[in-house]
């Protein structure tokens, strides 16, 4: 109860259930744009695609691990948005609604991939990292040469691997929080979780990232900051 109570004071609180469709329409220009799509405004849909294409691709690419597939899935998301236009009612920010669809589409894709045993995305792994590529990279890059500076592309590869190492739900929560700057309440809505569960999820994700990336954080120096 204490935690719930704490959480309900968060910045996402004002965006939960109590808001009316009108308030989203007033505050979120993309909701207004989507309402135009619903009312048959031709350019509005393309405008939405243009606004969200890169953001959506970034999330999907990290979720499914393949660029081509991510682009296909992004198109699928936009197709679903268009098909849903007639029954669209603004009950959340547009981005929340869009990423909810993206989450569903990505989940379906991952399930299909898993069934076909084409495991593009590693599933969640806890415990030892020694068997995975990330751990091997960690050893090669820093364990044996503790003082070397990582170059930019190497850091990027390591971080990408660390993100891929998170489980699916953690990864989605991290992407929405970090790159979409979503509140816990919004992430909860996208992922159909409680805000408290999002809080735990992100906390564990931060812990996993710290564990995975600690070999690269040498003496408090963040390679990301030395080479922005």
């Amino acid at each position: 109860m204490e935690n719930n109570g704490t959480f309900m004071q968060t910045r996402g609180d004002d965006l939960t259930g109590s808001q009316s469709a009108d308030s989203y329409e007033v505050r979120d220009p993309d909701v207004r744009l989507m309402l135009k799509v619903r009312n048959g405004d031709a350019g509005a849909f393309e405008e939405l695609v243009l606004r969200y294409q890169n953001r959506l691709l970034a999330v999907l690419e990290h979720l499914v691990g393949k660029r081509d597939l991510a682009e296909d899935l992004a198109q699928e998301v936009f197709l679903r948005v268009y098909r849903a236009r007639e029954r669209y009612t603004p009950r959340a920010k547009f981005s929340t609604w869009l990423f909810t669809i993206a989450n569903n589409v990505a989940s379906n894709a991952r399930r299909t991939l898993a069934r076909r045993r084409e495991v593009h995305v590693e599933s969640s792994r806890s415990g030892s990292l020694s068997a995975d590529p990330l751990a091997q990279m960690a050893l090669a890059a820093s364990g044996q040469m503790p003082n070397r500076q990582l170059d930019h592309s190497e850091t990027r590869g390591v971080v990408r691997a660390a993100v891929a190492n998170l489980n699916e739900r953690q990864r989605m929560a991290v992407l929405l929080s970090k790159f979409e700057d979503m509140s816990y309440a919004d992430i909860a809505e996208v992922m159909k979780l409680s805000p408290q569960a999002v809080k735990s999820l992100l906390s564990r994700a931060r812990g996993s990232l710290r564990d995975a990336l600690s070999p690269y954080i040498q003496d408090g120096q963040n390679p990301g900051k030395t080479n922005p």
Binding site: A58, R67, H152, R156, V174, L209, S214, N222
Partner: peptide, 11 residues
């Protein structure tokens, strides 16, 4: 660790 996520390329 979180800050290192900034290193991820922009799609």
């Amino acid at each position: 660790g979180w800050m290192l996520l900034n290193e991820l390329p922009q799609s």
